[in-house]
Simulated assay, not measured.
Amino acid sequence: MQNPSELYHFETDTDPQDLRASVLVLALGGFMDAGHTQKLLTEHLLATGESTVVASFDADQLLDYRSRRPTMVFDTNRWVSYEDPCLALHRLTDRDGTPYLLLTGPEPDFQWERMAEAIRQLVVALGVDLVVTAHGIPMAVPHTRPIGMTSHATDPRLIPLQENPFGRVQVPGSLASLVELRLGESGHDAIGFAVHVPHYLAQAEFADGAVTALNAILAATGLNLPIDDLVAQAGLNRAEIAREVEGSEEVAQVIAALERQYDTFLEGRQKPSLLATDVSDLPSADEIGAEFEQFLRQIDDPGTDESGGSRA
């Protein structure tokens, strides 16, 4: 392995000892982020706090530009701009002035082991005690019921006792998952939250999922992070979804069926939430997916109304 420390450089001459923070939020995407949960969460944190970039990673070594080409702008007869991919480590403070770190950017295509070791080096250098991740996963659940969540960690003491809805499964890997694995192997604490997003909203923005993720981070870290703007956004999002559902009797019937399935399941198991959901007891995406095709087309772009106009 090449030297992991050559993958990143500090953007400031400040002594790393003066940049220390006990929490690092890792938001580098992955193989799925249903409801844009992580994206909404990251945008909220950066928009509601003063951010200083303390370190950057060498994107040229890590990204496959041909698989996701950066945007460029052509004006009349010349190129005028290039959207430079950026993997950056931000330092922010919560409402009490407590610092925390946020590593965000596109998930690297190459050198995952080297990148994981580079992150571990930064964890040590900056005195990080806990690394946290959150993202959304699609589930056959209605958006009108409490949002479930699956927690995972390098040490069981970091998360409350819960029944996992998936048991033992094989899934495509992600850098965030590898980082959590490697941190655990080297004795560092890391915790992750997979928010259960209704699968018919997986490709749309589902702000309630981001609120759930942020609340989980608050509980795990003790940080006093702003949440009001995200809660307000979730309220507007719920109202928009409700309008779309009201406009389609077919969609409303399918959601009602999911609600009955959800309520019957909880009554039978006498569980307070879907944290112990057996996915075999719930309808599959194939069984109800056809009814939602038109619904998804209508809400896929939350900034456009049914007539094609722009919503305020």
Rank of each mutant, 00 (worst) to 15 (best):
N3A: 14
S5H: 12
F10G: 12
V23L: 03
L24W: 13
L26Y: 04
D33T: 05
G35Q: 01
Q38K: 08
L41E: 03
T42Y: 02
L45K: 05
T48D: 02
S51I: 06
T52S: 08
V53L: 01
F57P: 09
A59T: 15
D60I: 10
D60G: 13
L62Q: 13
R66H: 15
W79P: 06
V80S: 14
S81V: 09
E83S: 12
P85N: 11
A88Y: 15
T93A: 05
D94H: 10
G97N: 02
P99M: 06
L102Y: 04
E107Q: 08
P108D: 05
P108N: 04
D109N: 13
E113V: 09
M115H: 11
I119H: 07
R120V: 04
R120T: 11
Q121T: 12
V123A: 05
V124R: 10
D129R: 13
L130F: 05
L130D: 12
V131H: 05
T133Q: 09
H135M: 09
A140W: 12
P142S: 07
G148D: 08
H152L: 15
L158T: 02
L158E: 00
I159E: 00
P160S: 00
L161G: 15
Q162P: 14
N164W: 01
P165G: 10
P165C: 10
V169T: 09
S174I: 04
S174N: 02
A176M: 08
A176V: 08
S177T: 14
V179W: 03
E180Q: 13
R182I: 10
S186G: 08
A190H: 00
I191K: 06
A194E: 11
P198D: 00
Y200L: 11
Q203R: 13
F206E: 01
F206Y: 14
A210S: 07
V211H: 05
V211I: 02
L214N: 00
N215Q: 13
I217V: 07
L218M: 06
G222A: 03
L223E: 00
L225I: 06
I227T: 03
D228W: 00
L230E: 02
A232P: 01
Q233L: 15
G235H: 10
G235Y: 01
I241V: 07
V245D: 00
S248G: 12
E250L: 08
Q253T: 11
L258W: 09
R269A: 06
K271P: 02
L274H: 13
A276H: 12
T277F: 11
T277R: 15
T277A: 11
D281G: 03
D286W: 13
D286V: 14
I288A: 09
I288Y: 03
E293K: 15
F295T: 06
L296H: 10
D305V: 11
S307C: 12
S307V: 12
S307H: 14
G308I: 03
G309Q: 10
G309Y: 12
